[in-house]
Design a protein around this nucleic acid. Structure first.
Lengths: 193, 193
DNA sequence: TGTACATCAGTGAACGCGCGTTCACTGATGTAC
DNA sequence: TGTACATCAGTGAACGCGCGTTCACTGATGTAC
């Protein structure tokens, strides 16, 4: 009864490794050791370390997309608040996958403005859709484009979490308070005046 | 005529190394090789690699503080705009030192809110002074504390630069435009309404 | 002025480590006839 | 139903690399008397 294929088990072990020790301590050898397997067995499932890292990051990005998609389609403003909260939750409750999703080198990352405008990024597109809805409804101002606003949100959330991860807050509680206040304020700053 | 002591030359070489290759490729051996010196010679000047890294980051933080201090004391609002521009310039024209200042692990980093409120961070204190002046003059609203506002600015600027460094912008020009627009907007959002 | 000695920057070989990856292999499982 | 063969997950030893750091040293420079 192989509930999980070896490939999936490798990714899970890699995530665990990532959790303690971070990227720098993630090696083919440690992952294999955690699984009670020879390092070379990994090469049966991934061409090389880069491919494994890539799978890891894809996996985590999918998880993030899934969390975003799970948000109920209430009012667009509520959706935006909720998306900020989910980003925070993702960063706090799964620092591993958060790190894999956003901190591993991502060769295929979408670029602003072209890729974004062309809706090539699934997560940012999702966010932009709700921003557009908010603008359409009249609850958001229209002087800025959805991609501009989405990218602003993105930068702010990333910056806040980066400071937290760099140990710039006394504790998680202080961080949570600050994060929620700042992001709420940022959303508010785009409301129709 | 030793224009530069060996210690200073080591730090300069380390900065150069940091420039190409980043932190991960910064090793005692490569630094020494760049100087045409034996790796062990470095240990005459630094107890170990950590101490060298620490000196590197202190050095870069001082450079950043110096750049902030050089801003003329015009109106507080102009000062804040200028500080954002200098942060951008620092990130773009000296990515090396920027990386050393903000991306190297900083064991002594000040924490929000305690250390900040107590004015333990020289750069944030400088920024908070101008925010206070703006509030006193009446050009900034008073519903938020200077430390809250300063930390918000800080997170936003860091987040923007992090996205740029992660290759999320088509080019430096697009980034510069976006950065300046977003930060100006953020400053504006704290003006008295 | 000359000698003895301490200081100190830098040398060069070596140690032990963890890393990604190579190579030739074993042994079980599935499939074709 | 039995045999021959391909497939495929995993093994185990080894290679070559760059790393931080140890150790005992050399040789020049400064200082005390």
């Amino acid at each position: 009864m192989p509930a999980l294929g070896t490939k999936a088990r490798i990714l899970r072990a890699a995530n665990r490794r990532l959790q303690k020790g971070g990227i720098s301590r993630l090696s083919m050898r440690t992952i294999a050791a955690d699984l009670g397997i020879t390092p070379m067995a990994l090469y049966r499932h991934f061409r090389d370390k880069d491919e494994l890292l890539d799978a890891l990051s894809q996996d985590a990005l999918n998880e993030w997309l899934r969390r975003l998609q799970e948000i109920g389609s209430e009012s667009p403003l509520k959706w935006l608040h909720e998306s900020f909260e989910r980003f925070l939750a993702f960063a706090l409750d799964s620092p591993t996958r958060f790190e894999a999703a956003f901190l591993l080198p991502a060769p295929k990352a979408r670029r602003f403005p072209d890729d974004i405008t062309l809706r090539r990024s699934p997560t940012l597109t999702l966010m932009m859709n709700h921003i557009e809805r908010a603008q359409f409804e009249g609850s958001f101002c229209r002087d800025e484009s959805p991609e501009y606003i989405a990218m602003t949100f993105w930068a702010l959330a990333q910056g806040l979490v980066a400071l937290f991860r760099a140990g710039r807050f006394t504790g998680a509680t202080e961080f949570r308070d600050f994060y929620l206040r700042v992001t709420a304020r940022c959303i508010a700053s785009f409301r129709r005046s």
